[in-house]
Design a protein around this nucleic acid. Sequence first.
DNA 1: ATGGGAGCTGTTAGCGATACCATCTTCTGG
DNA 2: CCAGAAGATGGTATCGCTAACAGCTCCCAT
Lengths: 326, 326
Amino acid sequence: MEDVAELAGVSAMTVSRVLNAPEKVRPETRARVLAAVRELDYRPNSAARVLVTGRSGVLGVVCFDTTLYGPASTLFGIEQAARDSDYLVSIASLPALNRSWITRGIDRLRSQSVDGVIVVAPHESAAEGLRNLPPGLPVVDVGGGTDLPVPVAAVDQFTGAARATRHLLSLGHRTVWHVSGPPNWIDANGRVDGWRSVLEAEGREVPEPLVGDWTAHSGYEIGKRLAREPDVTAIFVANDHMAMGVLRALRETGRRVPEDVSVVGFDDVPEAAYFWPPLTTVRQNFGEVGRQAFQLLLDRIAGAEGEARRMVEPELVVRESTGVSP
Amino acid sequence: MEDVAELAGVSAMTVSRVLNAPEKVRPETRARVLAAVRELDYRPNSAARVLVTGRSGVLGVVCFDTTLYGPASTLFGIEQAARDSDYLVSIASLPALNRSWITRGIDRLRSQSVDGVIVVAPHESAAEGLRNLPPGLPVVDVGGGTDLPVPVAAVDQFTGAARATRHLLSLGHRTVWHVSGPPNWIDANGRVDGWRSVLEAEGREVPEPLVGDWTAHSGYEIGKRLAREPDVTAIFVANDHMAMGVLRALRETGRRVPEDVSVVGFDDVPEAAYFWPPLTTVRQNFGEVGRQAFQLLLDRIAGAEGEARRMVEPELVVRESTGVSP
DNA sequence: ATGGGAGCTGTTAGCGATACCATCTTCTGG
DNA sequence: CCAGAAGATGGTATCGCTAACAGCTCCCAT
């Protein structure tokens, strides 16, 4: 920086100003400095800047399994929003979803002086990890959970599940079975609640949900059990991959979809339209969730206080697994 | 840090040593210092440390679309390896895959003083972006490309494609059609080469590859065309999602898999075993690639020089799409 | 003319850590 | 018992940058 200053015939301070508050420098001086910057290919040292300003331009993301479609898409949305605002994203992935690892993940990021942290860990245990946060560190949660002491951005799982369930009932089914996600996952719980609430409101029987683990494999195993029950005619599955397993189990057992059984999934993964049959599902706009979370974090970094909840509306996408072929 | 030193009755220098070279401090002094550290919940300021040491404990990953299964899995592998070695990962995702954006991504990371960069951009244009690297910045590439001036970790696409093709020929097919990935993607090219080389070695006709874009949609469109050709009896598809589209197109056209047509995919996404029929495919160990890439980068950071190439062997997983049902 | 404000640039003092060298103990062996 | 090495600790300078204030120039209103 000293060299740049010398080459431009100004002081280091002026160089600093050109880079941080260009309007405070006379245009011709600014031009000289910028020329020198280019000439010497000078790049400011962010460590030094962080040291003195306390702000790093880096935000941290704590997440669990970034190979799952949902978290990966959310992360991607966050990253894009961050890029547009000249933020960089550091990620801390967790070997397991529980309070202690989440706390450690946040600590790891904090030790790198991130300006804020977004937690993408849609599990009840995440809530625990968000109770005793280091003061002064802005944190935003993605996915929800009740009574979190931090702002939240999430897809409205309850509404999505309710829409899926109502859609199935509207087709004339007596009731709707549910293949749920693993216990204590926020999303899984929300979908169970939305499904149950519609059935109860309509005075329908509420079958016991069958618990899967998000994988196609678990969907297949559960599907085989459901396929044996002749009165199962409508199934709401908590994600598309499990729905894929369910579809295959039904087919193997000779139950036709949608003629004998209607199936709805959740997520709308890009392949859902090419399942056999194409899957009716609930689309989640993960990119939007990521963007909202980033915006909430920016607000927090800027000093905003208080509760904040950004709910993104999911959308029912009707395909052949709940209707007749076109 | 001053406070910790005072509380422990030592100098700041000793506190620093306790944290960085504990063996150089007498055990009792060390214990006093550590007690003080805990008492005050002291955390070293990484910015200050970076400023003086020049090393940050952060590595950068430049990547394109982290919602694709391959890149997401690789990123995950890198992150896990990094966590085990107390590195943090910063990501710079690119809005488009070309030379200029890759250069910009690397710059963005470099300005944050990362210790090294892993580029996950399996596209020919990535090679361009790796030609004129800033000197002194360790860079490792994932996915390959020819004659890169940096170390590379990758799955051996050629071998994987060759195995898939040989498997299909071994079933008695006259030749094998290929649905490829988009032009200029390294992986896509490698698979085309492996496929073509086996056909040529065996003296078989080499049909023109049909070019897709990795999506199930493109697989479906191409599959419809292939399904109309009666002499198409074996198809090697460059990834599982496109294979899913192909399967559906074949079924819609009344061609049975595997009785009329055999299909092999590539990737072994977790759902592949639940396609209809279950998909024979080539499994890539993305986690291992991530780990190898990280190791290469560590070596480079430690000063290792010269060429380095770590090829990970893919594995053919035979399922019903190329065999009779069990 | 001239006081004073606006606008631009420079000077100085850290930010929080470690490198390097100096100093002070504590051993070890003859 | 002492020289000298080895081990433990401290003092000081410095990494590259910006906050805060000081100083200078120029112009305008009185």
